[in-house]
Amino acid sequence: MKNYLTNIFNEYKNKYPELKAWLKDNTVDQVWGMGVMPAYSLEPYSCELQGHSPGRMLAKKESSPAANKQNYSLDVNRHIIGELRYSKFMDRKKEWIVYRKFYLRKDNEIIGLIFGSALESRDDASLNNVILAKLDGDIITSSYFYSYDNNFSEKKYIYKENNIVNIEHYMWLNTYIEHYYNIEIEPTLRITENAPEGIIIIYPEQ
């Protein structure tokens, strides 16, 4: 799987302008989100596993750029296919620094292409990470992550009655690491980790 993600990375690392054009051609609607963390993540509980709450989608369809706002592009099936995150307005250049994500949907998978910062009008952003989500219908069963510095990880999602109850996270960094998470959604969301020293509360942050 790492080789597959490496090939995806190499295929798209120089296609930022083409991806921007593809997104423009395939966007039929948009929604806005707001928050330090994104309002949408391809991987389930991505923000919460870092100890943070995700951002929120705004009820109003029309909005305007601001720091920590995200503009999401929707395709004809109302799937999110792109994210434009506004970071900082450069007074001297009269332009925003932005981060972009593109989501390519295939039969049983979604490819997430995560680019670094660039001025909004520029085409020189670098591809930082690739995320691959494997699907069973509309359910994400596993996800894979590859970064520009050759790090690789895998998450497996275990369901009970259509809800994720456990996440297994395997990481190949400088050393091999495993994490095992428990997900409780009632009465409120609570995530804990089975660690060698015992149960650690991951979310909400203590």
Rank of each mutant, 00 (worst) to 15 (best):
M1V: 11
K2E: 14
K2W: 04
N3R: 09
N3D: 11
N3A: 13
Y4K: 13
N7T: 09
N10I: 12
Y12W: 12
P17S: 11
K24H: 04
K24R: 09
D25I: 01
N26G: 07
V28S: 14
D29P: 09
W32M: 03
W32C: 02
P38F: 02
A39F: 03
L42W: 01
E43D: 03
P44W: 04
Y45A: 05
S46Q: 07
S46P: 00
E48P: 00
A59D: 12
K61F: 07
K61G: 14
S63C: 03
S63T: 00
S64T: 07
S64E: 10
S73F: 06
S73C: 06
L74V: 08
N77D: 06
N77S: 12
I80W: 03
G82N: 07
E83Q: 14
F89I: 03
K93L: 13
K94Q: 14
V98K: 02
Y103H: 05
L104W: 02
R105Y: 14
K106E: 15
I111V: 15
F115D: 00
A118H: 05
N129F: 00
V130A: 07
I131W: 05
I131H: 11
I131G: 02
K134D: 10
L135I: 06
T141W: 00
S142E: 11
Y148L: 09
D149W: 00
N151I: 08
S153N: 01
K160D: 15
E161T: 10
E161Y: 11
N162S: 12
N163Q: 15
N166E: 14
I167M: 02
W172H: 08
Y180Q: 12
N182I: 09
T188H: 14
N194M: 12
P196S: 05
E197T: 07
I202D: 02
E205Y: 11
